[in-house]
Simulated scan of single mutants.
Amino acid sequence: MQRIRLNLNQLEETLLITLWAKALDSKLPVPMLGDTHSAEIADRIDYDFSTLKIKDSLTYETALRSRMLDDAVRSFTTAHPNAVVVDLGCGLDPRMIRCHPPAGIDWYDVDFPEVVALRPQFLPESTHLIGADITDPDWPADIPRDRPAIIIAEGLIPFLPSDSFQLLTRTLTTHFTTGEIALNGYTRFAAWAMKYHPTIKALGIKAATGFDDPRIPETWNTGLTLIDEDFLTRAPQIAAWPQPLRALTRAMSHSTTLSRQGARILRYHF
Rank of each mutant, 00 (worst) to 15 (best):
R250L: 02
D70T: 00
A153D: 09
D106H: 03
V30P: 07
D213V: 10
D87E: 12
H197F: 03
G204A: 03
L160Q: 08
F165Y: 13
S126L: 12
D43S: 14
A149R: 09
S50I: 13
L33D: 11
R250E: 04
T173F: 03
Y108G: 03
G89S: 05
D87W: 09
D230H: 02
T78P: 15
T199R: 05
D48C: 09
S57D: 08
H128T: 14
D106E: 13
F76V: 06
P140R: 06
V84Q: 14
N7A: 08
G91W: 05
N9Q: 13
Q166A: 11
W192N: 15
L168R: 08
R74H: 00
T256L: 05
L183V: 15
L19E: 02
W107G: 09
L224C: 15
A23I: 01
R246A: 00
S255I: 02
L6W: 09
D228A: 12
I143T: 10
D56R: 07
R5Q: 11
T59N: 03
L64M: 03
G34W: 02
I265R: 13
F165A: 13
S255V: 01
E40I: 11
Q2K: 15
N184M: 05
G89C: 01
L24N: 04
R65M: 04
E229V: 06
G34C: 10
P124Y: 08
T219N: 12
T135W: 11
I216C: 06
L52F: 02
T18S: 12
L168D: 07
E229M: 02
H80A: 00
C90Y: 01
D93G: 12
D93F: 14
T59R: 06
A63C: 12
G262P: 01
S26L: 08
I151Y: 05
L245I: 12
A191R: 04
V85H: 01
P144W: 08
P124R: 08
A207D: 02
R95N: 07
I157T: 10
R188L: 09
L123T: 04
M32V: 15
R260H: 06
G210W: 08
R264P: 00
T59M: 04
R260W: 06
R267Y: 06
L11Q: 15
T233V: 07
T77D: 14
L92Y: 00
E114K: 02
T257P: 01
H128N: 14
E218T: 11
A190D: 05
L58A: 14
F159E: 10
A79V: 08
Q261R: 14
D212I: 06
L24F: 01
G89A: 04
A247T: 02
T225D: 07
F231D: 00
V30C: 00
F122S: 03
D43F: 13
P236W: 02
I105P: 03
G210R: 01
R119A: 13
I41W: 09
S259N: 00
A42M: 06
F189H: 05
L232M: 00
T127I: 12
P102R: 04
K55M: 08
H100G: 15
P124K: 05
Q166S: 11
G89L: 12
I105G: 14
F165C: 04
L245A: 09
L232A: 00
D70L: 03
A247L: 10
M252N: 14
D212C: 10
T127Y: 03
